[in-house]
Simulated scan of single mutants.
Amino acid sequence: MLLRFLITRPLSRSAPLRAFMSTSPIAKKMKSTKIIGTHSGTFHCDEALAVFMLRLTDEFKDADVVRTRDPAKLEPLDIVVDVGGVYSPEKHRYDHHQRGFSEVFGSGGFDKIKLSSAGLVYKHFGKQIIARRLGVEESDEKVETLWFQLYSELIESVDGIDNGVNISATPLAYTQRSDLSSRVKRLNPNWNEPTSDAIYDEKFQEASRITGEEFLSQLDYFAHAWLPARDIVQAALDKRFDVDASGSILVFEQSAPWKDHLFTLEPTLSPASQILYVLYPESDAPGSKWRIQCVPQSSDSFVNRKSLPEPWCGMRDDKLSEVSGIPGGTFCHASGFTGGNETFEGVLAMARKSLAL
C-alpha cells in the first residue's frame, strides 16, 4: 500500500513522519529524520528526479518528502527543491524559477543551459551519489568522468526541457515525445480525471520511481560497460601504427562502445593522427566475420570523415568482392559508413584501399 505525503498540517519534528516511495529499493526502512520539500500539484521530471537523487545521498537517504507550496511549511524543512524562489546551497535551497537565476553546470563545457532542480541537485550531490553507487571515494578519477557523462546523456536534457530550450537552438532532441520528461508529464492526472492532493502525491511517487530507475540504469551502464571500453580504445590507439603506417586505422579485438572515447582521447595523441576507420569482429565466436566502420565527424554526426568508396556502396558478397578487388566481401552499406568481410585481413585490405582512393 502506498504511503501518503504530509501536506495538510504543520510539521512536527517529534511526530513520526512517513515518506512516499515505500516500494523503492532505497526506502525499505524509514529511519531518516530528514525532510525533503517540493511543490504540490502538477509535477515535472526535474523535481521527481531531484527527490530520487537526494535519497541516494548519505544525508538524505530514506528522507521523508513533503509536497506543498506553503512557505510556512517549507521553511523548517531540511532541503527544498523546485519551489521557494531561492537558490542557496548553503541553506539547501534549490529552486530555479526566480528572476535572475542563471546557474549552469559550468564544468566540461556545459554552460549554455540553465539548470532545473534536477541539474542543481546533480551539480552539488552527483559525485557523492556516483561514488556511493560504485563504492569508491569521490576523489576516484572515474567518478568525475561519469559525472560529466551522465550529465551529458541524461540530466542536461531534463534541464533543457524544463527550461523550455528551443529545439532549433540546440542539437539535443528535447522535443521527443518518448523522452523521460514526457513520460513523467503523462503521469499527471488528465484534465477529465478526478484530482486531489492525495492523487497527485501518489502519482508523483510513481514519477520519482521511474526517473530513478532511468538514472540508475544509465549510471550503471556508463560505469560498468561504457567506461571500461575506454581502456580498449586507448590500447587500440597505442597500437595504431602497428596496424598501418598512416595511423588512421584502429583494430578492436572485440566490439565495444568506442565513439565517445575516441573523440575524447584522439586530441591527446602524440604523434597526432586522425582516425578514419575502426575494425572489429562481429562476435566473440572463433572464425567470426569482421566489420569496418567509418569514423564520423563527431560522436553524434552521420557524416563520415572518409566514407568507403562509392562504387562499393550497396554491394554484397561476390559482387562486392568483384567491385572492390578484395576477396571475402560480405556487404557495404548503401551510405558507405560500414562494411564487412569474412576475415580480418579482408577488412584491413578494405580500410587500406579506402585510404588510398
Score class of each variant (00 low, 15 high):
7 I>D: 12
9 R>W: 08
10 P>L: 07
12 S>L: 13
26 I>E: 06
35 I>N: 13
38 T>N: 05
42 T>E: 11
46 D>L: 07
46 D>C: 11
48 A>L: 08
53 M>F: 04
57 T>P: 07
61 K>W: 03
70 D>I: 14
73 K>W: 03
83 V>K: 05
84 G>V: 05
84 G>R: 01
89 P>G: 14
96 H>A: 13
101 F>Y: 15
102 S>N: 15
103 E>I: 10
104 V>Y: 03
106 G>H: 04
111 D>C: 05
112 K>E: 13
120 L>D: 05
131 A>L: 08
133 R>M: 08
135 G>Q: 08
142 K>P: 00
151 Y>D: 12
155 I>S: 12
156 E>C: 06
161 I>S: 03
164 G>C: 10
176 Q>I: 11
178 S>G: 15
178 S>C: 10
179 D>Y: 11
181 S>F: 09
186 R>M: 14
187 L>W: 00
193 E>V: 12
194 P>I: 13
195 T>L: 01
195 T>I: 13
197 D>E: 13
197 D>R: 10
199 I>F: 02
203 K>Y: 10
207 A>H: 00
207 A>N: 02
211 T>E: 06
212 G>C: 07
231 D>P: 01
234 Q>M: 13
235 A>R: 03
237 L>I: 12
237 L>H: 03
242 D>L: 12
250 L>V: 07
251 V>C: 02
254 Q>M: 10
259 K>V: 08
263 F>A: 08
263 F>R: 01
273 S>Q: 02
276 L>A: 04
278 V>L: 02
281 P>I: 10
284 D>P: 00
286 P>E: 13
287 G>L: 07
289 K>M: 09
292 I>V: 15
299 S>N: 06
301 S>P: 06
307 S>I: 05
307 S>W: 06
311 P>M: 10
318 D>Q: 05
326 I>R: 00
327 P>S: 05
331 F>P: 01
338 T>C: 05
339 G>V: 09
341 N>S: 07
343 T>G: 10
348 L>F: 01
352 R>C: 01
354 S>W: 01
